[in-house]
């Protein structure tokens, strides 16, 4: 019996050691393969009902280290330019924020690299200081993040938000579309073109023409 038990533990040891050499999907994964581009939309919204947009003049950088700021690095300039161009290509007209645009585009870089704090829509109210609705001409308003904003991550990410400036509800500006860029290299300027192209390409409904 002792021998059987000995044998069985040897088998178990073998099982554990062999199964631990299972293929690790994260090894041999390129940065490009690691990235995901998630888009969320408001189902009830007719995106053709909007004609004009304005875009923030800098990118909000929020992090769990408490050093939130607005930045305009080369990366940020490229992001603003690419997103503007993509919106124009979708048929929307870029106007100044004083010209009562239908849509506001907020850009945010999120750095949660150093903690396990989940970043969820509730936390987004924290951006208020950077994109205070006052910036868009709505002093005293807040943002409304609908339930389709299922955004959770704990790493560096980039968020592109479309805010409806035409139809505020209960003193809140409603977000109608969000693109979240996640994975390795999302803060790398070399990847901005392909990432922005991808999120606008996969959102066919985002257009001015029916």
């Amino acid at each position: 019996m002792k021998r059987v038990m000995y044998l069985m533990s040897a088998m178990l040891g073998l099982a554990v050691s062999i199964s631990s050499c299972s293929k690790d999907p994260l090894k041999n994964m390129t940065d490009e393969e690691s990235r995901i581009y998630v888009t969320n939309r408001a189902d009830s919204v007719d995106f053709t009902s909007y004609k004009t947009f304005s875009i923030a003049d800098s990118v909000a950088v929020i992090s769990n280290s408490g050093k939130d700021e607005r930045a305009l690095t080369d990366y940020d300039k490229k992001l603003i330019a690419d997103v503007s161009a993509a919106m124009v290509a979708k048929g929307y007209t870029l106007v100044g924020k004083s010209a009562k645009p239908d849509l506001a585009v907020n850009l945010t870089r999120i750095d949660n690299t150093y903690s396990a704090i989940y970043y969820d829509p509730g936390y987004w109210s924290g951006i208020g200081g950077y994109y205070d609705p006052f910036y868009w001409g709505y002093p005293g308003y807040g943002y409304y993040w609908p339930s389709y904003y299922q955004v959770y991550q704990r790493e560096r990410a980039v968020s592109i938000d479309l805010i409806d400036l035409k139809n505020p509800k209960n003193n809140e500006l409603v977000a109608i579309w969000n693109a979240m860029l996640r994975g390795s290299g999302v803060w790398d300027i070399a990847n901005v073109d392909s990432m922005v192209t991808a999120v606008f390409a996969q959102s066919a409904y985002l257009t001015t023409s029916k």
Binding site: S19, S22, Y37, V38, T39, R41, D43, A198, Q202, S203
Partner: peptide, 17 residues
Amino acid sequence: IDGGEISAVQTRTLQVV
């Protein structure tokens, strides 16, 4: 996905013991 899209490289694994 529900309410949106995900562009991704999918890696699918199933480990059976």
